[in-house]
């Protein structure tokens, strides 16, 4: 995995704390907007067998993958995305949740989702993930035969609360290595996520 683009937005936010005292206003950190390419998240098993394999964990504050058992926000394996919050569904090789992460799926473009509705945030549970699995339920569509292509659904923005209570939003662009413009499921390697994300590093700020 590599970060190919680092772009810092210069937008500064004026914070509104609970008491409206100008003296309390502080300069906030810049919102981070990045493109992650080829985050490799392979899975084993499947085709009737239990799915297994390590999840590839990601930390928004670091802007990269991590192997930490605690400081991760979301994790990928195959088409499944889990969050570090709630409880494990008990699947093979599924990591323990020890953070306060959560998620929901918003409709829009990455730019148009500007505020977070925290009431919609749910966490992984024993029966389902916050980002649902299966074609058309979560972030992707599986075309089935003859193309067998897995494509991210246009207009689905995944909104996350991180393990330490901050917010981020992502738009997945591709599930195939090097994000080909027209992927071929028989040629291009799958399990390689390319996505844009925006991270709000300021505690308690629910807008971007």
């Amino acid at each position: 995995m590599k970060t190919i683009n680092f772009l810092t937005l210069l937008t500064l936010f004026i914070g509104f704390s609970s008491c409206n005292n100008d003296d309390d206003s502080t300069t906030l950190l810049a919102v981070e907007s990045e493109l992650i390419s080829n985050l490799h998240a392979p899975q084993e098993g499947g085709q009737g067998n239990p799915v297994s394999g390590e999840f590839t964990k990601f930390n928004f504050a670091l802007g990269q993958t991590t192997t930490s058992d605690t400081d991760w926000d979301i994790a990928f394996r195959g088409t499944a995305i889990i969050v570090n919050g709630g409880v494990s569904s008990g699947g093979v090789d599924e990591p323990v949740r020890n953070g306060e992460a959560g998620a929901y799926i918003a409709t829009g473009t990455l730019g148009s989702v500007t505020s977070i509705d925290t009431s919609l945030i749910i966490q992984d549970s024993a029966t389902s993930f916050a980002i649902p699995t299966g074609s058309d339920n979560g972030w992707y569509n599986y075309a089935g035969p003859p193309t067998h292509i897995i494509s991210p659904i246009a207009g689905r923005i995944l909104v996350f609360r991180t393990h330490d209570g901050k917010y981020a939003k992502i738009e997945i662009l591709s599930y195939y290595k090097d994000a080909p413009a027209n992927p071929d499921a028989f040629v291009d390697e799958d399990g390689y996520y390319t996505f844009n994300y925006v991270y709000q590093p300021n505690e308690g700020v629910t807008s971007f």
Binding site: T107, G108, T109, A154, G155, R156, L173, P180, A181, P183
Partner: peptide, 15 residues
């Protein structure tokens, strides 16, 4: 305005 599309399968969505 609930429907989105992409120019190519790997480009950003628009309304």
């Amino acid at each position: 305005g609930e429907v989105y599309a992409r120019e190519t399968p790997s480009s950003p969505s628009f309304q």
